[in-house]
Design a protein around this nucleic acid. Structure first.
Length: 426
RNA sequence: CGGAGCGUAGCGCAGUUGGCUAGCGCACUUGUAUGGGGUACAAGAGGUCGUGAGUUCAAGUCUCACCGCUCCGACCA
């Protein structure tokens, strides 16, 4: 991909009214654009990151036997009345009437819709278990959107739902999800703290939250310096209490971003909506459900919060929008060798399955370097006269700042070593 | 929804006790030079001063209302 043919509107200055580093860098690196408070467009570079995270999630979901589908975001309120959640979630629902005066809402979550769907197809225990998921836009009329895409009114979520005949089956699927979630966040370059949580408005018994401690966030995690005990906490009781587990260490608090939340729902929805199956013993029973959410767009913010320096973003390789950036330093008179090498490296690396961005703009070297640091592509190849006079090309690792001066014929090999040859997931 | 702040060019800002043609930096256009860390010089283009009403000879500036954005709080699967 040529930069000159790609829409990457970088900003030199930090936009006003941005507190979170991730928010600032999302805007400066040209990943997102705000339409109104809590509502963001994803620009080409941001969309690439989003899709790579989605692909990681898809792999992990598919690996545990979950099937992807796509549910509507336009819901009749009548459906929500079946569970009474039209009242419970009234404050976050975006409601309106369609042209036939029918009360509608934009889906803030999808338990009711999926239960309605499964109800129409599942009659027998022989058809269970079923695990379904989607990656879709959710709408929540947040009283106060903040931290850019961390709390938005329109955001992208992966939500999965499991349907089992008994609690044992639910526990099994729950464990599989738990493991898959650990894999997803690890592959995204995030260290998560997993907490037992309150199931709140979702209902059910067992629930875990996947949190990433960061400098911003809306939740608090306390941890014990002595035994490593970790738990969620409210602001008031967070600091300075002795550890409830080992009684020795003191708890220290840190704010965190909630990225995932899984629930053993039980029969709350299946009972309310009449989603039953005929069990082996000839009795009608409500399907046992679980639900599992990941804030996909929020994952992007968390990754940036944890992977940046004063110059910009440092993408973990697995989620980077491009694998390699080639940065030719051209004068006004085009240097044929620089151009030829640029084309050759582009072709060679692309043939290896790498996504390559070429900064072919007629900009000064300094500007290209700064933009490269800002958008944070893991590997940068700089082709310029200075090193070329010695037959060398510079390869730089964005994360470690390590610089290799490679023979111009060895670039493909060196880059392959750095990226682990074909590092694309698909 | 309570508290606080902000709104002037794409971005970041200045604009005095109201005063005459609304400025600066970056970005943008054209030209010349430059070409390894936001290069230099020159010439340009770009504005309903958030919206509406009011006070006044005169409003970016004062008053009121509304809209929008941000932060703190409340809320949050």
């Amino acid at each position: 991909m040529k930069w000159s043919n790609y829409f990457i509107p970088t900003l030199k200055e930090t936009p006003i009214g941005t507190e979170a580093v991730s928010h600032q860098l999302l805007l400066r690196a040209g990943l997102v654009h705000m339409l109104t408070s809590g509502v963001y467009s994803y620009l080409p570079l941001g969309l690439r990151v989003l899709k790579r995270i989605e692909d990681i999630i898809r792999e992990e979901m598919n690996a545990i036997g979950a099937n992807e589908l796509f549910l509507p975001c336009l819901h009749p309120i009548d459906l929500w009345k079946q569970t009474g959640r039209d009242e419970v979630l009234a404050d976050v629902m975006i409601k309106f009437e369609d042209n036939r005066k029918r009360p509608m809402c934009l889906g803030p979550t999808h338990e009711e819709v999926i239960t309605n769907l499964v109800k129409d197809f599942i009659q027998s225990y022989r058809q269970l278990p079923v695990v379904l998921y989607q990656i879709q836009t959710k709408f929540r009329d947040e009283l106060r959107a903040r931290f850019g895409i961390v709390r938005a009114c329109e955001f992208i979520m992966k939500d999965a739902y499991s349907f089992d005949r008994d609690k044992k089956g639910l526990a099994k699927n729950y464990d599989l999800m738990y493991g898959a979630y650990k894999n997803v966040f690890q592959r995204c370059g995030l260290k998560t703290v997993i907490l037992e949580a309150d199931s709140g408005a979702m209902g059910g018994d067992v629930s875990h939250e996947f949190m990433v401690p960061a400098s911003i966030g809306e939740d608090t995690v306390v941890s014990c310096s002595a035994c490593g005990f970790q738990a969620g906490a409210s602001e008031e009781n967070a600091e300075g209490k002795p550890c409830p587990k080992c009684k020795k260490g003191n708890l220290t608090a840190q704010v965190a971003i909630e990225l995932g939340h899984i629930f053993q729902l039980g029969t709350k929805y299946s009972q309310a909506q009449g989603a039953q199956f005929l069990d082996e013993d000839g009795k009608q029973k409500p399907i046992i459900m679980g639900c599992y959410g990941i804030g996909v767009s929020r994952v992007i913010a968390a990754i940036i919060e944890k992977h940046n320096d004063d110059k910009g973003i440092i993408w973990p390789r697995q989620v980077a929008p491009f694998d390699v950036e080639i940065l030719p330093i051209q004068g006004s008179k085009e240097d044929k060798e620089i151009k030829d090498l640029t084309d050759r490296y582009y072709a060679d690396l692309t043939a290896q399955g790498l996504e390559v961005l070429v900064d072919d703009r007629e900009e000064t070297a300094g500007r290209k370097f700064n933009d490269a640091d800002l958008i944070g592509i893991p590997v940068r190849i700089t082709i310029g006269k200075r090193n070329l006079a010695e037959g060398k090309v510079e390869i730089k690792d964005r994360e470690t700042n390590e610089v290799i001066l490679a023979e111009k014929g060895q670039v493909k090999k060196k880059v392959s070593e750095m990226t682990g040859s074909v590092c694309r997931i698909n």
